[in-house]
Design a protein around this nucleic acid. Structure first.
Lengths: 246, 246
DNA sequence: GTCGGGCTGTGGTCTAACCACACTGTAGAC
DNA sequence: GTCTACAGTGTGGTTAGACCACAGCCCGAC
């Protein structure tokens, strides 16, 4: 039966065999986003492995943001193929930050790099800019006080992601989102260091509008400079010495 | 006992509970790189879950490049904490490329972005440059013929990683390595498109030396330009229209 | 026609067992 | 005394089988 096939993969661990099979299906287009994997029991029987091994492979894919598992029956149930690269990169980066082998400073630096590039490259007529403008208005609308800082920051994240999306590079967008996610918990605590949140929020908003205006004026260089200053300024104010490499 | 604790995490899936516990240990420094996780059976008992769930969590960490599992006994055995962000990002990107939701063009573009930045920022006296020079000599030494192209490309990967490391940003290095890995299979087939591999290899080597010289002369801007031209030129010659976004 | 309750198929979890592996220590041969 | 062979021990790797919760579906009672 499939024993020859198994032998070909030799010393590969069982769940890796399942992963290879699924990745092959994806590459060949037999599985695509929105499609559903065979049921775990079915897949196990098809590949001649135990359900446990199939589940381990699916767990990995789930962690990678490639599939989503849902119980029950119906269209929302089963294991369906999605595509959420941000989730994968984000949790990976977060874990490695936890091991303290990825300095937060390097993450901030990379974020500046990616966002500057995105701002410089964003198209002035990108539809994402409309959404970005809406988000800025919402940020103005949130009340004052430290309690509201979280809401402000949540909108801030989406604003920056909109700018990244406007550059039209899915990889850069995903990486930016994951960088942001990986230090989200970190950034949230930073607001406590700020002497005057209201003043900071107003300054950030002014900077946001300056960046948006620069992009809409097709002044990519200016937009990139403003973004870099915006991010670095925030972390510097909150007490992170990230650019002090020397 | 731990039931209160369990209730706190409420609807969290069991393996996520294990993941949370391990990540907490990492954050607190109770576990660090080189350390060993408790044995699977022990951990299962400690956390009050089944070994299955513990294994699923460990599988995810393994896929993320956070741990390495080894059978047997002795210092090399057991589940030990490592830190290989490149592995995580690489396989994640590769999988999403397979779903065709991450265009190869975007990956190449991002690679140009990151490598240009790294070249511009690399220190002229970085020790990694020595290694890079050695790699160039080795590339010269490999024989001609398409059979040797693989060996050449393998050294080429390491050369570019050296340059990235010279910039001193772990996140950028990891992302670069993962980008390269995610399209490795893709890039290998590209050489078949080349009309004259020997000529291409010689040109690449000349460009490599030019880049290295620029970095050593502290001419970051030139190095960045050369790197961008180097990468884009290769893919263009091999038949990838990646910059043709318009 | 509407409501209720089983039926079915999905992932989620657990238990218990076995295997392969690599070291470790000890008993025996020399 | 030293070396060798081998059983012991602890590790991850894998499997089978069972049970649960969930969500949709279908059919019968009313």
């Amino acid at each position: 039966m499939w024993s020859d096939h198994i032998n070909y993969y030799g010393d590969m661990r069982t769940h890796q065999l399942v992963l290879t099979w699924i990745e092959k299906q994806l590459s060949e287009g037999a599985l695509s986003v929105g499609g559903r994997l065979p049921a775990e029991r079915t897949l196990a029987e098809q590949l001649g492995v135990s359900r446990t091994s199939v589940r381990e492979a699916i767990r990995i894919l789930e962690a990678m943001g490639v599939v989503r598992a849902g119980v029950g029956s119906g269209p929302e149930a089963g294991t369906v193929v999605i595509s959420d690269p941000t989730a994968a990169l984000g949790s990976a980066l977060r874990l490695h930050v936890a091991t303290q082998h990825l300095p937060v400073a390097d993450i901030v630096e990379t974020r500046v790099l990616l966002e500057s590039w995105a701002a410089a490259r964003a198209r002035a007529d990108a539809p994402e800019l409309e959404q970005a403008a809406t988000l800025l208005d919402e940020m103005d609308a949130v009340g004052h006080g430290s309690r509201e800082a979280d809401a402000f920051l949540a909108l801030d994240v989406r604003f920056h992601l909109c700018l990244a999306d406007a550059a039209g590079n899915a990889v850069v967008s995903a990486m930016m989102g994951s960088l942001r996610e990986s230090i989200q918990g970190y950034a949230a605590t930073l607001t406590a260091n700020l002497p005057d949140w209201d003043a900071t929020a107003q300054r950030l908003q002014a900077e946001h509008r300056g960046i948006l205006a620069a992009i809409r004026n097709d002044d990519g260089d200016l937009a990139a400079k403003l973004v870099a200053a915006h991010i670095e300024g925030y972390y510097r104010e909150a007490g992170v010495r990230h650019a002090a490499k020397s």
